[in-house]
Design a protein around this nucleic acid. Structure first.
Lengths: 228, 228
DNA sequence: GCGGCTACTTGAACACGTTCAAAAGATCGG
DNA sequence: CCGATCTTTTGAACGTGTTCAAGTAGCCGC
């Protein structure tokens, strides 16, 4: 059934080339003039193709943004590698990962608002909670799994199992804060990270105190009960 | 300078009537067919005015939604009164307030996604974090101030001062969860409230344990340092 | 009543995201 | 090389949110 040529799933080398041309052009325009001011017509014009052609490869303008986001995540994963490889203490591991996100995403700060906007819509396939973005989310959570696993952190096993997802949620919170942060050089978001991470660390270490243990159990139970 | 007629700030009785007609028509159509499928033309048609007229009173379609949200908050404040008047224990007070929100907002669940979408955009004046919505946010936080003040809860004074805002944040989290909740009769969101509130209560009571006190101080310090 | 002012109202026009029927290329068995 | 079939490309057309120049209506001082 499957031929041995390049045409196995209806994709051609030429087609891939056009797809990438459209994406790179879109990303450039997004960066140069923002998402809102970049029109599909401008993207098509600049790429030297027709509007309809852009829609042949990307279902909507938002899908082009999704591609932007995927790129970001990929860059984040790369930026995080040396930190995860060379550091064992939990606090610098987590801080490093969060700060790396900030550095990677900084050039897109203005445009990030628009991303968050569509991401918050539950019906959008771009929502970080949607089924469609499950792979991207899993990859993102995996970074935090590494943060936990490679660290010297000691927490109860049940909590440890949920921790990567919780830290991912923490990052979502940081991103939400970052999107709204208008201070110079993102000073406030940096403060948030610098102070929140040690706080999280203290909290996690508290879970070994007997009187606190019950709360932890409750928390884990809560998380499990509301998972879909 | 100011005349004694009704024209004191450039608003006429007739104008107010038109404004309300447009709003009520819009809200009806939003409810009947959803936000996305309701066009500005349809609103104008149904209200018997021109499209431009709708824009004379409401700067954008989103502003009509904002009015929807204001209505919701007003209804929530009313629904919450008997609970706050007749109950002293912290857990039922907070649960009651959160459940009341769920009940008030339930008819608009489908349409709430769209609201959240624009709310997450930091440049939108509709964002719950924006300066424009400061009054609405303050009113909303005030409900949680009442939850705390009228309750038997005992927490350190510095934390107590920040608590209303923190509980408001908790509600934002619940709303975010609710928006994405597709379970029957919002079962998952109800579970979240029923289990999270006692957990919050336990956490707050823990703050009086000496070993935990330091973490609380850190938390309060963090909050204060990142406020604008 | 009149001139002028402000509040209000209109609807055509614009810009943008998106769709789609049709054309153009590419590939391949024969 | 032909015809068939699939992939790619086109650009006009549509629907929608939004703008704006122009018009209408009410009101006040005179």
């Amino acid at each position: 059934m499957i031929t041995l040529t390049s045409v196995t799933d209806g994709a051609t080398a030429k087609g891939e080339q056009t797809r990438e041309l459209i994406l790179s052009t879109a990303l450039r325009l997004f960066r140069e003039q923002g998402y809102g001011k970049t029109t599909m017509r401008a993207i098509a014009n600049e790429a030297g193709v027709s509007v309809g052609n852009a829609y042949y490869y990307y279902g909507s303008k938002e899908h082009l943004m999704q591609a932007y986001y995927d790129l970001l995540q990929e860059q984040h994963r790369e930026a995080v590698e040396p930190i995860l490889a060379g550091e064992r203490a939990f606090v610098p591991r987590l801080s490093g990962v969060l700060r790396a996100w900030l550095d990677v995403a900084a050039p897109y700060h203005e445009f990030a608002g628009t991303f968050f906007k569509t991401a918050a819509d539950p019906r959008s396939p771009l929502s970080p909670f949607s089924a469609d973005s499950q792979p991207a989310r899993a990859a993102s959570i995996d970074v935090f799994r590494q943060v936990v696993e490679g660290s010297d952190l000691k927490v109860p096993a049940d909590l440890r199992a949920e921790l990567p997802e919780l830290l991912w949620l923490l990052q979502m919170g940081v991103v939400l804060f970052w999107v709204h942060d208008q201070s110079d050089d993102l000073r406030r978001t940096r403060t948030l990270i610098d102070r929140a991470v040690p706080l999280v660390d203290r909290l996690l270490r508290l879970t070994r105190i007997p009187g606190v243990r019950g709360v932890t159990t409750d928390l884990v139970g809560l998380i499990r009960s509301i998972k879909p």
